[in-house]
Design a protein around this nucleic acid. Structure first.
Length: 518
DNA sequence: GCATTTTGTGATGTCAAGCT
DNA sequence: AGCTTGACATCACAAAATGC
């Protein structure tokens, strides 16, 4: 067992003279002096031991303190009442907690991730030197002790901070084995940096991080490390694995410590995006292009000092053609992207090329790998205007537009600025072929109507009638070869519910009787 | 230069998961 | 139990692109 109380301190201050005019301390023994880097809640631990207490929470509660949810500042106030020297050391090492923020020595940290007393953590070698709790034991981001180069041990037998549990010899054995293994650990430099910022060690200078609040510096390290280790990935599901965060932070810190170029890393990272082909995005959606990186940047809590990251990211986005608005902000890239060359060669606009590259008639999400001039050319030659497509289908422009908004087909190149979209001839012809393939060999001849009459009798839109046939909900019963396109399709008339002229608008609200029949 | 349409962006809200 | 967090939807508005 590690003694929590060094022998010399145990009997020191009980002999101290005590002014009778002041209120006596509320505990029988207080003969301890705070060490440097010792927080009030750590000091309180020794105080409890000095007073023969086994369970620190109970001891705290007996003094009117919150022993269940430890508030370091509350304990500091208590300790300051004691007639002991060196309380300024407690003040300097005791964090103050406000909502989800923790402040220690003027540095801002995040509660939970950066600072937590959920489990008791300690460096065995530190305790062997002097048995007291250092405030930085409470920082889970400090995985290894930079002074002794061993991993911090943690006690997890209690969910709450179980001060009263003594260390077991088996724990010490584990610590000793670890000590041999963690030489040259990647976490050493990171831990040293953190403790440098907190005034425990000589500060190490990393200008990029030094200008940030410590919580933001840690965040920056973790996202850089994630870029290095995790690489480009689409945005994750809401289940967040934090198990690797520590590894990320350390890797990110070491990258910056070795003067790694963040801009280069960023560009390399974004190039890994599957949406980026030959340095051009096939899709302008920033969220998609950046994957998880988007949320890393736009999560507001941590954005305060990270504007430069936003700028660098925007620069890459602009360079790869993700956002038009940024073009004026940054000069045009010196290397002409291949999309531009293809556009010039084929007489297309650059966004048309990108849309053609993105498009795949079978799997709309895929097709980005098709980004060669030949493919674009082949696809481009299949494009027809809305007018031509409407003629192929044998419908008016209005009906064509209605079918499009009904989702029966989609343009390959979207309409932009008054210019109508472009459609794939194959896809349009496929619609007709699909319907024609359903025509039975022995077609009925009586009671068949075309879409125009059908939709009026069924009181549905033309598009709905077509969609129903395509989905198989309505059977195709005949084909009039004398008519063009969809006009040739013949289906069985729905139950006749009223006289129909074959012309005119559909009634806005079909009568209940008609609706019932349908 | 104008009209129309798309795009970029922040504000706001929701939801589930995980943590205190 | 209540809070934060991350992912993401949705909205409004401004800025930019585009065709005329």
């Amino acid at each position: 067992m590690i003694p929590l109380l060094s022998g010399s301190a145990a009997h020191m201050l009980d002999k101290l003279s005590w002014s009778s005019s002041a209120n006596p301390p509320p505990i029988p023994r207080w003969g301890l002096e705070p060490y440097e880097h010792e927080p009030a809640h750590g000091f309180f631990l020794r105080l409890a031991a000095l007073n023969g207490q086994q369970a620190t929470p109970a001891f705290a509660m007996s003094l009117g303190l919150n022993g269940r949810n430890i508030d370091p500042q509350q304990m500091l106030q208590f300790c300051k009442q004691l007639p002991i020297p060196g309380t300024e050391r407690l003040c300097a090492a005791t964090p103050s907690i406000a909502k989800s923020s923790v402040y220690i020595r003027g540095e801002h940290l995040r509660l939970g991730r950066d600072w937590s007393i959920r489990h008791r953590r300690y460096c065995l070698a530190c305790l062997n030197e002097k048995s007291f709790h250092r405030f930085w034991f409470d920082l889970p981001i400090v995985r290894v002790c930079p002074i002794h180069q061993i991993e911090l041990a943690s006690e997890r037998r209690s969910m709450k901070w179980a001060w009263h549990y003594p260390l077991q010899t088996s724990d010490m054995a584990i610590c000793k084995t670890d000590a041999a293994l963690t030489k040259a650990d990647p976490g050493l430099r990171f831990s040293s940096y953190i403790l440098g910022r907190l005034g425990v060690l000589q500060p190490s200078r990393i200008s990029l991080l030094d200008n940030l609040r410590l919580s933001e510096a840690v965040y920056l390290c973790s996202i850089i490390g994630k870029m290095l280790i995790h690489g480009w990935k689409p945005a994750e599901s809401s289940r967040h694995e934090s198990s690797q965060d520590q590894q990320f932070m350390e890797a990110g810190h070491n990258f910056l410590d070795e003067n790694g170029s963040l801009s280069d890393l960023l560009e390399r990272h974004i190039r890994e995006s599957p949406y980026c082909v030959d340095g051009v995005f096939g899709c302008k959606d920033i969220q998609k292009n950046l994957g998880w990186w988007y949320y890393a940047l736009y999560t507001k809590q941590y954005r305060r000092g990270l504007d430069f990251l936003m700028e660098d990211t925007n620069r890459v986005l602009e360079k790869f053609g993700a956002c038009r608005r940024l073009r004026r902000k940054f000069p045009v890239a010196e290397n002409e992207p291949s999309a531009r060359e293809i556009a010039t060669a084929l007489g297309l606009r650059i966004d048309e090329v990108i849309q053609l590259a993105k498009w795949n008639s079978r799997i709309p999400e895929c097709g980005l790998e098709e980004f060669e001039a030949e493919t674009i050319k082949r696809r481009s030659s299949r494009m027809i205007s809305a007018e031509t497509a409407a003629d192929v289908l044998g419908v008016s422009r209005k009906r064509f537009a209605s079918m499009r908004s009904h989702g029966i087909f989609a343009p390959v190149i979207k309409d932009a600025g008054g210019k109508s979209g472009q459609y794939d001839r194959n896809e349009i012809e496929e619609i007709l072929a699909t319907i024609k393939s359903r025509v039975p060999t022995l077609s009925k001849s009586a009671g068949l109507v075309d879409f125009d009459i059908y939709r009026a009798k069924a009181c549905c839109s033309y598009s709905k009638a077509v969609a129903d046939v395509l989905s198989g909900a309505v059977a195709v019963d005949g084909w009039d070869i004398t008519k063009p396109g969809l006009q040739a399709v013949l289906v069985s008339a729905p139950v006749r519910t009223r006289n129909y002229s074959g012309r005119g608008r559909l009634p806005k609200h079909p009568s209940p009787r008609i609706a019932q029949v349908l």
